[in-house]
Every structure is written in C-alpha cells, then in structure tokens.
Design a protein around this nucleic acid. Structure first.
Lengths: 226, 226
DNA sequence: AGGTACGAAATCGTATACGATAACTATGAC
DNA sequence: GTCATAGTTATCGTATACGATTTCGTACCT
C-alpha cells in the first residue's frame, strides 16, 4: 500500500496502449508534484518526453481534464488545475458526502481482521505526528479509508472518492494546509469510527461520523482563512 | 426547459471545436435513443456521418466513456453502455446520495417563486399520468429537480447529478421500467418535498426525504424483479 | 516614454496515412 | 457434421503533416 495515485484505471497488466501509458505518466507527475498547479502542459513536449506522438498524449490530457486534474483551453493549451480555494471547498464538501456514503455502505461488510488492519494504519499515523511527516500521514490516511472501503458494494461511489483524493493530491493541500491540531483530532476520529463499525452502529450514525470527519478538516481550513 | 441532454458541456456559443461538436452530437443520439444500448459505435462511420475525420470523433467517444455513457474496449471498439441491472442499481444508489445532498444544500436558497414554478411542473407531471406519457413525465421530472437545484452552491455535486441523469437516459430506464403506482407516489413525494422546503425544515430531514424519493424508485424496480 | 500594429514563433486542432490487432469466413481434416 | 486453422476484412491505434490560432517580441508612430 501507500501508493500515491489511486483510481480504477491503473489495473491493466500487459499490453497497455500508449494513450493509457501517457495518462498514467502525466497523472503520476501531477499527483507526486512534478507538475505543480498552474504548470503548462505542452503536448509536443510531453510527447517527446515519453517518446510518443502527440495524439495519445492529447487523449490522456483530455481524460485528466474530465477528472478535473487539468484545465484545457481551446487553442491555448492545458495547465494543471490550480489552488482555487473555492474549488477546494467544493471538492472537500463533495468528498465529505461520498466518503460518508461509502463508509456507511461498507460498514456492514467490514470484518474484525480489516478493523485490526485499520487500527494498525492508524497507529502508524499517530507515529507520523511525532516525527512530523505530513506527506506520509496523508498517504496513510488514504490507506486507512481504503481498508474500510475494500468491500464497498458500490464501485461508482468508490470511484468518486478516488477522484476527490486525486484532486486534493494535485492541489497539494495536505502539505501546506496542515493544521497541526487537526491531525491529532483526525486520528482520534478514526478510532471512534472504528468503534462505531465494530459495534454495528446504524448506517445513519456511521455516515454522519464519516461525513463529519471530512467536514471537520474543511472547517479547520476555513477557520484559518476567514 | 424540457431539454433532453443535461450537463455542463453545452454552454459554448460560437467557435466550437469539432471534437466538442462530435461529443454533443453523439451524446444527443445516445440520450434521445438513436444509438441504443449495445449499439456499436464505429469511429470511421460516425466521422463520415458528421463530415469530420476520426480524430475528433475518437476524442468525443473517450469523453463519453469517462462519463459512463460508452464502453470502450481496446482494439475492439466502442459500444453504448448496456442495460446491466447492476449498473442501474449502482447509478440509482449514487444518484440517491448526490441528489439528496444537492437538495439539502440548495433548500435554503430556494425562494417562493421557484417553489411556485416547481409546483407548476409537478402539476404538469400529474397530467402526464392521466394521458400516460412516460417520456414527457421523465423530462418534467428532471425539470422539477432542476428548479430546486438552480442555486445549488456546489457545482461539483450538481455535475454528478447530471451525469447520473444522462446515464439513466441512455439506459432508457424510464420508459420500460415505468412502474405505474410509483409515478403517482413520485408526484406526491414532490409535493411533500416542497412543503419541507417551504417550512424550512432542517437540512437532514430534507436530505433524507430527497434521498428516499430516488431510493423508492429503485426499490420499486427491485421488487418487480426479485 | 507609452502605446499600437505588424510579424514571427509557438502551439493547438484536424486530416490523412499506415501498421497492428481482432473479428469474421471459408476451407479442409477428422 | 463438427472442429480447427489459415486467410481476409474490418476497425482500431498511432505517426506524421499541415493549416489555424494564439502569443510574444519588435518596430514604428504619437
């Protein structure tokens, strides 16, 4: 685990089309931060970089545009989506909703083994707080929720969660908006969430808790700016 | 109102790229049912139809794929997404969640004029029931909810709603899964929803009602098959 | 000096062309 | 009669090429 880019598209094994390769390559560069927000994505340049022609690269960029990672302007070009506070709010709010739903739907299918694994991840997160390692903290945070979502019965919703995560990653929000107090709270909320799941709390309670968990991070950010 | 294809992409006015034109054209054909589920989308053929080359058409198809309207298989081709009952369930469940959220977020911003317009639409829907006009009923149903979502503060969520609608339209679900009793119920639920909004019920109540409104249609379908 | 207009460079959008892959068909063996 | 196999056709995937549009720089005018 602890991968960076998440999503349903990186599953293929053997004969990947160049279009897919280009998609994966550019996406990875955005997620990992090689291409930072505002970065100008010149088709010909990327094509040369990868050794492809422009056509598959163009296709890849368009796909990234559909996911919101890239902005494309006619006859002008593509840029990595920027750090618009409004966009951040929209994304977090949407994530809050879809994560809440995904958690509630998954909860009845989470067994004690998975719970234990989630606890282990959460313990690692606690360690990260001591060593102050925000990057790893964020990765582990995704791992934590990924464990819960392992048997999510609705792949569409899971896909929406992944899109949100990728979007946040491209915004690099986790690193520069690392509100210290919030992280500790987050770890505590994880434990509380696990207990709700263990005790088979009703779906509504779990959904509210999961939703609030994300919403609280948004609130923490909003309180720093306003 | 009473348009067929909904979405954020049809806003451009003047110089549309051929890629966008192709996207709009194919999308419209899928929504209106010219291309039915399972229909084989041959790039060269569509390109000839529109008078374009294959490149922009290909791009358009890929975009439709990202929205779930089309399935694309490497070296095989594209087909209009089919009537998979599982997909239907996923889509309806997801819609239930995002519509619920969109309604709750929009509710405080809906004024009495909008309420009146929504009531008018709902009255038309009631008429449709007497004349048995399922196609128009579905269109009006979208209109009804569109009125409520007019000032939705989160465009991302609204976009998800539109994607769900388009997907359902491509499945032609409304026409052949028209459970008679359900439609009457739906109209009643609309009125109930309007009253909740008028009385400024709390967000949670409104969200649950809106969510249940969609979920009930899914349940009605499930009860007919199982 | 500042602004405007013209021209050059960069980049995008699309067409055409061709190699690669899969689907189809026909032929022959068992 | 059925199955396997080889050849053909259809279609996709990608490269290359060129026209269209924007952007940037420079020279000229006020």
């Amino acid at each position: 685990m602890t991968e960076t880019a998440v999503g349903s598209a990186g599953v293929e094994s053997a004969a990947q089309s160049k279009s897919q390769q280009a998609y994966a390559a550019v996406k990875a560069r955005i997620i990992e931060g090689t291409y930072t927000p505002g970065y100008r994505l010149v088709l010909a340049k990327i094509a040369e970089d990868l050794g492809f022609s422009v056509v598959p690269v163009r296709e890849a960029i368009r796909r990234l545009e559909a996911e919101g990672l890239v902005k494309f302007e006619r006859n002008v070009g593509a840029t990595v989506s920027g750090i618009d506070p409004t966009e951040y709010l929209y994304t977090m709010q949407t994530l809050s909703i879809v994560e809440g739903a995904a958690t509630a739907l998954s909860a009845p299918l989470i067994d004690s083994v998975a719970i234990a694994r989630a606890r282990a991840v959460n313990a690692e997160m606690r360690e990260c707080l001591e060593h102050f390692d925000p990057v790893r903290f964020t990765a582990l945070n995704q791992d934590f929720h990924s464990v819960l979502f392992e048997h999510c019965p609705n792949p569409h919703i899971l896909d929406l969660v992944h899109r949100g995560w990728n979007r946040l990653a491209s915004l690099r929000s986790s690193t520069f908006r690392f509100v210290p107090g919030r992280a500790q709270e987050s770890v505590r909320e994880h434990e509380a969430l696990l207990q709700l799941i263990e005790n088979a709390a009703d779906a509504d309670t779990i959904e509210k808790a999961a939703r609030q968990h994300r919403a609280a991070t948004l609130d923490a950010y909003l309180s720093t700016t306003t």
